[in-house]
């Protein structure tokens, strides 16, 4: 009962928040400085974490497939399998999960603390919109930064596979290199990359929703932060399934 209620208020509340955010983007003068700051805080600061994660994923996958496929003499498929899975799934999804954990949690706790210290009330009391001042720069900032991070994640994931393929599995570097570009299509790339725009919206809108819904006390900020990260991660996973299906239908249709 309470779970259903919370689920419905999450969906309803964040939809309303998103609608108001879009409306506020086009009202009055746009907050470029705050947006650039967010792009920097999200993009540049998350780069190392995303880099390490996706590179490791690429390396581990190459190793696993290398061991598995070697038994059947299928080592030659490693470049294709690893690069394709990184670009279509692991790069975008892992980059988003890491950003949800790192940035989403930061957003929720920062906004939650602003609510508790009445800074959000103050923005409103001074005749300005908290959505415009707080939510818009974060949503737009992540919408720009996450796809860029995804590009880096894809490159590093593929590079990780390449390193292991050449170094540990003894594949020829030129061969590996050529295979990557032979097998990957632009549509493969876009179907992974395209998801990150949706993930960026999910992460930032949920993070802001939970932050703004803190009522009193710093303890609640902690709960809200946890909920924000869990919700974003689940939404990314479930959303991934539907987005994959959607892109797939789209590809077939084209």
């Amino acid at each position: 009962m309470t779970l259903t209620y919370r689920f419905i208020s999450l969906i309803g509340g964040s939809s309303l928040l998103f609608k108001e955010t879009v409306r506020q983007i086009f009202r009055g003068k746009y907050e470029w400085n705050a947006t650039f700051y967010q792009i920097y805080a999200v993009g540049v600061a998350s780069f190392p974490v995303v880099m390490v994660t996706t590179m490791s994923i690429g390396m581990v996958m190459a190793l696993q497939f290398g061991i598995g496929l070697a038994k059947f003499g299928g080592s030659l498929y490693i470049p294709k399998i690893v690069s394709l899975s990184v670009i279509k799934e692991f790069g975008p999804v892992f980059a988003s999960i890491m950003v949800a954990a790192r940035v989403g949690s930061g957003m929720t706790s920062e906004i939650g603390s602003m609510v508790v210290t009445e800074q959000v009330n103050a923005i409103q009391a001074l005749g300005t919109s908290p959505i415009k001042k707080i939510v818009v720069p974060r949503v737009v900032g992540l919408f720009i930064a996450l796809p860029v991070l995804c590009v880096a994640a894809n490159i590093l994931g593929v590079l990780g596979g390449f390193i292991v393929g050449v170094h540990d599995l003894g594949l020829d570097p030129m061969f590996y290199y050529q295979k990557i570009f032979e097998t990957l299509k632009v549509s493969d790339y876009l179907s992974g990359f395209g998801k990150t725009f949706f993930f960026a919206l999910m992460i930032s809108v949920f993070a802001c929703y939970y932050g703004l819904n803190v009522k009193v006390g710093t303890k609640e900020v902690g709960y809200a932060t946890t909920k924000s990260v869990v919700t974003s991660c689940i939404a990314i996973m479930i959303g991934d399934y539907f987005l994959t299906k959607l892109f797939w239908l789209f590809e077939v249709w084209i």
């Binding site: 210290t117 103050a122 009391a125 300005t128």
Partner: peptide, 19 residues
């Protein structure tokens, strides 16, 4: 309400400064 808030100032109990 924005128009109202430009004319009506609320002095917060704890300052509520942007930190």
């Amino acid at each position: 309400m924005v128009e109202i808030r430009k004319q009506v100032a609320y002095v917060f109990q704890n300052g509520a400064l942007f930190d």
